[in-house]
Measured scan of single mutants.
Amino acid sequence: AQASVVANQLIPINTYLTLVMMRSEVVTPVGIPAEDIPRLVSMQVNRAVPLGTTLMPDMVKGYA
């Protein structure tokens, strides 16, 4: 199964992502692939992302 990117903490709206904020986990539904974690660093979330939430492409500015 493919691992997705999951929030490792509460990520406030407009926060620039860093490695410590994200982890990879096999979840349903599938979100942003874990292999894209390096690409996500320094990208901004466009909403608050609670701890344990799967990151979806529409949550990250400029990802989709």
Rank of each mutant, 00 (worst) to 15 (best):
I13M: 08
R39K: 13
A64W: 04
R23H: 10
L55C: 02
I13P: 08
N46D: 11
L10Y: 15
Q2V: 13
V41Y: 06
M43N: 08
V30Q: 14
V5R: 00
S4Y: 03
Q9S: 10
A7E: 00
I32K: 00
V41N: 05
Q2W: 10
V6Q: 04
V27K: 09
T28D: 15
A34S: 14
A7G: 04
Y16R: 15
L51W: 15
M59L: 05
A1N: 13
P50V: 06
T53D: 12
D36S: 14
V5S: 05
E25C: 03
P50F: 07
V45L: 10
V41S: 08
T18Q: 12
D36G: 11
Q9D: 11
T15V: 11
V27D: 02
I13K: 08
A48H: 07
Q2A: 13
M43Q: 10
G52I: 02
A34T: 10
R47S: 13
E35R: 14
V20K: 14
D36H: 12
V6G: 01
V6M: 06
A1P: 14
A1K: 09
V45Y: 01
R39N: 13
P50M: 07
N46F: 08
M21Q: 12
A48P: 09
L19A: 13
L40K: 00
V6R: 04
S4P: 01
M21D: 08
V20S: 14
P12L: 11
K61D: 13
A48M: 15
A1S: 09
V41I: 13
M56N: 05
Y16M: 10
T18W: 03
V41M: 06
S4C: 03
A1V: 12
V5E: 02
L19T: 15
I13C: 03
P33G: 05
V41H: 06
V30W: 10
V27Y: 02
M59V: 12
K61C: 04
D36C: 04
P57Y: 04
T53F: 08
V60D: 00
V6S: 03
I37D: 00
P12I: 04
E25R: 08
P57S: 11
Q9V: 11
Q2C: 03
V26I: 09
Y16D: 08
V45K: 00
D58H: 13
R39E: 12
A7C: 03
A3T: 08
M56V: 13
Q44E: 10
G52M: 09
R23C: 03
A48I: 14
Q9P: 00
P50Y: 06
V27W: 03
N46E: 15
K61M: 07
A34Y: 07
V60A: 02
D58L: 12
V5W: 02
N14K: 13
V49E: 01
L10E: 14
M56R: 12
Q9H: 05
Q9I: 14
L51N: 12
I13F: 08
M43S: 08
K61I: 14
G62S: 12
Y63A: 04
A3R: 11
M43P: 00
G52C: 03
D58T: 11
T53S: 12
A34E: 09
A64M: 15
R47A: 11
V6D: 01
G31H: 02
L55Y: 01
T53Q: 15
V49R: 04
L40N: 00
S42K: 12
M43G: 04
V41T: 08
V30H: 12
I11F: 02
Y16L: 09
V6E: 02
R47P: 02
V26G: 05
S42Q: 14
A64C: 04
N8K: 08
A1G: 05
A34L: 05
N46R: 08
G31R: 02
T28S: 13
S4I: 01
Y63D: 06
L19C: 04
D58F: 08
N46Q: 09
V60P: 01
L55D: 00
T18K: 05
L51M: 13
V6T: 09
Y16E: 11
I37P: 00
V27S: 05
V30F: 08
M22R: 00
Y63K: 02
G31P: 01
I37K: 05
L19W: 11
I37F: 04
T15S: 14
M22V: 09
M59Q: 07
A34N: 07
L10M: 13
Q9N: 09
V41D: 04
V20N: 15
P12C: 03
P12W: 04
A3W: 06
E25N: 09
L17E: 00
L51V: 13
R39G: 14
P12S: 11
L19H: 13
P57T: 04
Q2K: 10
G31N: 01
L51Y: 13
N8Y: 07
M56Q: 11
Y63I: 06
T28C: 03
V5C: 03
I32M: 04
T15L: 04
Y16W: 12
V26P: 08
Q2D: 08
T54S: 08
A34I: 11
I37C: 02
L17C: 02
M22N: 00
E25W: 05
N46P: 03
G52S: 06
N46K: 09
T18L: 07
K61P: 15
G31I: 02
E35D: 14
K61N: 13
M59E: 03
G31Y: 02
Q9W: 08
V27I: 09
L17K: 00
S42D: 11
I13S: 14
I11D: 00
M22F: 12
I11C: 02
Q44Y: 08
M56P: 01
T28N: 11
Y63E: 04
A7H: 01
A64F: 05
A7S: 15
R39Y: 08
S24F: 07
Y16I: 05
P33K: 08
I37E: 03
V6L: 10
P57G: 11
E25D: 07
D58Q: 13
I32D: 01
T18F: 04
P33Y: 04
M56K: 08
T54P: 07
A1Q: 15
P38A: 10
I37Q: 05
A7W: 02
T54E: 02
P33M: 09
L17G: 00
N46W: 06
A34R: 07
A1I: 15
A34W: 15
G62C: 03
L40S: 00
E35N: 14
P33N: 15
I32F: 03
P38F: 11
E35C: 03
P57H: 14
T54V: 08
P38H: 13
I11H: 00
V41Q: 07
M22E: 00
V26T: 11
T15F: 13
I11A: 01
M59F: 11
D58W: 09
A1L: 15
P50S: 15
S24M: 08
E35I: 07
T53E: 12
Q2E: 10
V45E: 01
V6F: 02
R39V: 05
P50H: 07
M21E: 03
L19V: 13
M43Y: 10
V6A: 04
L19E: 14
